[in-house]
Design a protein around this nucleic acid. Structure first.
Lengths: 251, 251
DNA sequence: TTATAGCATAATGGATCCATTGTTTGAAAA
DNA sequence: TTTTCAAACAATGGATCCATTATGCTATAA
């Protein structure tokens, strides 16, 4: 459990701090990692007891973590039910998640175009360089990482902490869907990959340009268009095939 | 502690269910009510121990509740610090909260204009009738209630559950600010009241019309303009006076 | 063979306990 | 009188315990 946080992309979401991890945080990020790594799939159920034994902790921190995950909308435990269920995937959910992302991210992009400072543009460009590098190297994990960083960076540069807070759970959820869908989609391995076919870098470049020249509307448009070309979104449009995917877990 | 949930406006936010309250829910809504009722002000600090004694519960459910409130952004406990602090009010926070609301609510209004069914319009009109009634009766509490219901109804009719989830904490926080500001603002009692001078009903009417005639852009515009005319927002514009208000708690 | 009732199992909500650690008070020194 | 250090106090994080109750299995009956 030690190197739990050197892998995966979840630590991106943990605010940087020198304070040691509390037990419940270990559980929280562990579960999140399991979800991102697709070892936990929609329909799977987690139990406090089992988890606490697996992780060698008492149930107290496990409860805390699971309860937070529920608050984030990443798990659900309907009233009077035991176990914490990884929410099912429905075409409707997918559509709503991406619609929400489009609203939040295009607004943030517009704000970023208004508020960006010189260093911010540099930061975006640095991330973007990594995206290009890793996409050409076909280094899926590092590419994905940079991609995640990019979206959070735009959100942060936008400068609205409340919008940013609202964004995090929506984004997480959409990431889960992306991985899962890419995994199970019949087109997987052909033209579709988890990171939207590597056209992201070009679209990100367009967004950076819009932000750099302080064009809020163009930035918002670029962000929205980028989302629309995402793998998951494209799968969604392919509703006929989608029917084969959505539904219960395979496990 | 029994009639805790017949007063206040917080129960609006508890999803309806026949299941009895769990202990942690009692704590959760209790604290929320204390905040809305302005018995808890920015800068105040809550302690698990004290709360559990006050409410006659063990610390376990209290911890759960406080932890959820932190997750909602309604309390904060910085790393390595004791006590849960009601976040301070800064002009910047206020601006951001209202900016976030504008983004979320205008988007939801547009969606509502697209998705509204006949019954939905009826519901909005019913709430709106109550607003008019109570505003003319100067029944502050019931008016406020209807106002809250209205905003949630628009969000719900928009139909995006993820947007709705993101909206809730932002809205809550803005409500806290509204009450607090109205209380302490030097203009309180003159032209400003907590419910933005009762021009809300007219603005809500405009929003309903836009939704009813399926005009997403008009709906979004109406929602945004409504927010801009809110008390707190108007106070915010009055930055000179604002300086006297923002800052530590009075308690 | 399928459906139902009842029982055994085990997971959860809440209470309590303990070790750790942040806070505060007070005493001593500058 | 003000500052520093230490010791007592108190709040929290985590572990454990217990009562309640959801869940699953079995045996019986249709």
């Amino acid at each position: 459990m030690d190197p739990l946080f050197e892998k995966g992309m979840t630590e991106l979401n943990r605010p940087p701090t020198d304070r040691p991890f509390q037990a419940f945080e270990i559980v929280f990020w562990h579960v999140l990692d399991e979800m991102f790594e697709e070892r936990l799939l929609p329909g799977d159920v987690l139990y406090e007891t089992a988890l606490s034994q697996e992780l060698g902790l008492s149930r107290t921190p496990v409860r805390e973590a699971l309860s937070r995950l529920v608050a984030e909308g990443l798990l659900e435990n309907p009233a009077g039910t035991r176990g914490y269920r990884v929410p099912d995937l429905s075409a409707d959910d997918l559509q709503q998640v991406f619609q929400a992302r489009e609203i939040l991210e295009s607004s943030a992009a517009a704000l970023a175009a208004e508020h960006a400072r010189k260093g911010d543009i540099g930061e975006l460009e640095e991330i973007h360089r990594r995206e290009i590098l890793f996409s050409s190297q076909e280094n899926r994990r590092e590419y994905c990482r940079a991609n995640v960083e990019f979206h959070f960076a735009v959100m942060r540069i936008g400068g609205n902490r409340y919008l940013e807070r609202a964004f995090r759970p929506v984004f997480w959820r959409s990431q889960l869907y992306v991985n899962y869908l890419a995994e199970f989609h019949p087109l997987n391995g052909e033209e579709l990959t988890a990171e939207s076919g590597h056209n992201s870098p070009a679209e990100h470049a367009a967004l950076i340009r819009a932000i750099a020249r302080r064009a809020p509307k163009a930035a918002a448009k670029a962000a929205a268009e980028h989302l629309r070309s995402t793998t998951a979104y494209r799968i969604l449009l392919d509703t006929e095939r989608a029917r084969h995917i959505f539904g219960g877990s395979s496990r």
